[in-house]
Write a protein that binds this DNA or RNA. Structure first.
Lengths: 233, 233
DNA sequence: CGGAACCAAAGGTCAGACTTATTGGTCACA
DNA sequence: TGTGACCAATAAGTCTGACCTTTGGTTCCG
């Protein structure tokens, strides 16, 4: 699952990261490197490497004579995929899912509009293929198959936008969609209207109709917001 | 400037990070921890900590018997403020500035809409104050004063949205605005139309008019896109 | 009561030895 | 000749223990 699994310091992070992001230590709490090393039964070197990573994520701050202090949530690098995974695994998963869905609702329509202008012929083909895959898996409880194509679809859109900041949100969207299917609101079969919208977006991109691609994607994200009871009156 | 200045490993990062993000090492290049430690005249422990940080940013991957391999740009954590700073300092600064501005154009209007619904009375006051500050500094080449209030304005909007993912983009917007003023396109005085739009956004938020706040902010971001010759026909 | 000197605590750095996984080559066997 | 198993070289991973540096608190003196 997590890439940090490599090495001892990764194991430490797999425990300490979720603890911090879950709010187990209030902001300002002080941890001592030696104590942590003892707790996880690793050497100080390994513990220091773990602390450095947490520090680069702005989860903690290390200062001489003081120790490793936990930073308030507003300082965290909430776009770090690792941090996102930790937060999604924690108690405030619903809240995190809402934040990410709102982000999606802002980014994806614009990305779709750009994709309509920049997508290669190959990407257009991929998009159509994904949309067809969604249609094929939209009935009879084939949730996994549907999810697979749904994730691929949105990844292609974000990549085809040609904006590297958008492209990097592919993982985020994947997490949101996967989370929705596996844990949260997801009825037996996906909303037929959503399926149709995806097909139409693929169509609009293929026909280079940026305005239509953007508007249709906006409708998709509105649906996603409604699923989470995030109203937009 | 950079927070990594603390410690020896920070100094290593200040050199190695920009090198990698500038593309000095093609993807797949292999670096050896020992050689790097020798080059920077630091111990292996310090070098390892630096590598761990680069690894957490997905700039490199460390594997046994192989070394530290540089990852392709598409893998980088481009939302890490540190990575953003490094890329903005490098050769493809214009490209990075465009990416970020497009991201702004997607996020800020939605954030403004949310701010109109969620902003506290205090935040509304701050917003108005910032807008007035922009007006006061909009003539006579008071670029620094204008920039200060401009940055503050957008930070308040993003924070007041109530979405922590949006709030975290405050630093990004600050970098973009600062970069625009100090290095790139910026005429003697800011566009009067933009100044007016900011005042109107503050007004709309104060009056809880989400749709208007969103639309006005969209006009602001369109202006930002046009400044960088990113057309939207 | 205030400031300067002192001290201890905690992280920062270093050097060296040892461990372990991975890779690429070699050699034997089919 | 091809293919499998084995082995050795390699570079990261880990641990230990020593020493340095900064800094917050305490104490003592004016």
């Amino acid at each position: 699952m997590s890439i940090t699994g490599r090495g001892l310091h990764g194991h430490v992070l797999d425990t300490l990261g979720p603890e911090i992001t879950a709010g187990a230590y209030p902001p300002g709490s002080v941890l001592r490197t030696d104590e942590l090393a003892q707790r996880f039964d690793v050497s100080r070197s390994v513990m220091r490497e773990a602390v450095r990573v947490l520090e680069s994520m702005h989860l903690v701050e290390s200062r001489r004579r003081v120790g490793v202090t936990v930073r308030p949530a507003c300082d965290w690098n909430v776009y770090d995929p690792q941090v996102i995974r930790w937060r999604l695994a924690g108690a405030d998963r619903p809240r995190q899912l809402r934040s990410l869905t709102v982000l999606r609702s802002a980014v994806e329509p614009v990305a779709a509009g750009l994709a309509a202008r920049n997508a290669t012929a190959e990407q257009c083909a991929e998009l159509t293929e994904c949309a067809l895959g969604m249609v094929a898996n939209s009935r009879g409880g084939q949730l996994e198959g549907y999810l697979f194509h749904d994730v691929a679809f949105h990844r292609v859109i974000l990549t085809a936008s040609g904006n590297d900041m958008f492209a990097r949100l592919g993982d985020v969207v994947a997490e949101v969609l996967t989370g929705r299917t596996h844990h949260d609101v997801m009825f037996d079969d996906p909303d037929p209207a959503a399926v149709t919208l995806h097909v139409q977006v693929a169509e609009a991109v293929r026909e280079r109709d940026a305005a239509r691609a953007e508007e249709l994607t906006r409708q998709i994200t509105v649906g996603a917001l409604q699923e989470l009871d995030i109203l937009a009156p």
